[in-house]
Write a protein that binds this DNA or RNA. Structure first.
Lengths: 217, 217
DNA sequence: AGTGCGATTAACCATTCGGTCAAAACAAAT
DNA sequence: ATTTGTTTTGACCGAATGGTTAATCGCACT
């Protein structure tokens, strides 16, 4: 019952964070089921018992890591969509900011998708985190925001109609998939890390046009 | 050393197949690392020792299942691309055939991506399976085929230029991602299995237009 | 100096898991 | 019916793994 909440002492900076960071790295490279508590402890430079001291079980540690990671996935996207009003402007911004973010954390999509496929229960947790963030920045539902911005352009006759569902899935697919399928693409296209980086750089520049052109009347 | 190759007897239909099928299902729902040999044995209705009799180790069993699954992923797509010549016709056919195939095996993309993220070595195996199949049907490299079909339309002035790389990744993203991210999408869009099926049905009908419009001059 | 208390560790435990083995079951051939 | 070679099984083993515990450490306060 000794939940470490009132951190009066702390021999080192912040152990809990170091553990979370280490767990994040190990979960990503081994998968949640393949990760070993000992490996996480080593990576954090800490005794294995400490992991249980802070997080009780492997399952809870996994939940904590997933939560932290998932909440960062769509945060920026939501912000940008809520910030702008014209798709001609928000789509390129979202795409570029998003691909920059994913370039910095290229393994996150694969991790999230794997985790969600093997533990669909976590999807609930995922969507709640998204809702919390949405309320925090005082925005409306993502689907509604996009729906309105689509409607605006459709009414103006500058865009073909499309449901917000398909719109968002198309956008997400084109941005996220290349990272989730990174090892496969690198092998099929015969490129290395540097080549992949170049591929993404070019994609960043051309994808917004591709997307917006697709919806011209 | 008793490799069961000359199958003279076989008490039951084909045990090896039943084991592979069972392993396929268990690997998909638990992930390779999370799967237990005992569970696979139970699912196949067979003693655990038999798994080792036929496949020696869990790792080899995993490789066999991955191989079998991966080889089916792009086979049809390659066939259709090699069969047609005009993108106006091949793209819709590929997309629709592909989404039909994925609808029948919706968990395959998630499995392949997870597996490939945690074992990038398998990418090699993956691309070799693809090459084998390509040679078998006597087709050229997928990239080259697509490159030529793009070039044809670009020269005719009916299409904006795009590299074959980006073309294929766009196509694959739009088709595969919704399945790989199925649990996430269901949660975000607030739909159930039936709703997802409807979503895909609609997508099947609208995606080819979206894609081809994106490349209009 | 001493005490209280959270943070940290080494040693340990019970279970699970992949893998092995020798015996049993079985079909085909003689 | 006996033999022969393959397939299938129950029982077993050692290592790895998640988790626990009792002792130690070190800071803060007196």
């Amino acid at each position: 019952m000794a939940k470490p909440s009132g951190e009066r002492h702390a021999r080192d900076g912040d152990t809990e964070q170091r553990i979370l960071d280490a767990a994040h790295r190990v979960f990503i490279r081994r998968g949640t089921a393949g990760a070993r508590m000992q490996e996480i402890a080593d990576e954090a430079g800490v005794n294995k018992a400490l992991l249980h001291y802070y997080f009780r079980t492997k399952s809870r540690l996994a939940t904590a890591v997933f939560q932290r990671t998932a909440s960062t996935l769509f945060a920026r996207v939501l912000e940008v969509f809520a910030g702008g009003s014209d798709l001609d402007e928000t789509v390129p911004r979202v795409m570029q900011i998003y691909m920059d973010q994913l370039s910095r954390t290229p393994y996150v999509p694969g991790y999230i998708l794997s985790e969600l496929n093997q533990h669909p229960e976590r999807a609930q947790q995922f969507v709640e985190a998204l809702h919390d963030f949405r309320r925090k920045i005082g925005a409306t539902d993502l689907l509604t925001i996009v729906q309105q911005q689509i409607q605006a352009r459709v009414s103006a006759g500058t865009m073909r109609p499309i449901t917000a569902d398909q719109f968002i899935v198309n956008l997400a697919s084109l941005c996220i998939f290349p990272f989730a399928a990174r090892p496969m693409l690198m092998s099929i296209l015969g490129i290395d890390d540097a080549g992949f980086a170049r591929f993404i750089k070019k994609r960043r520049a051309t994808l917004p046009q591709f997307f917006l052109h697709a919806l011209r009347p």
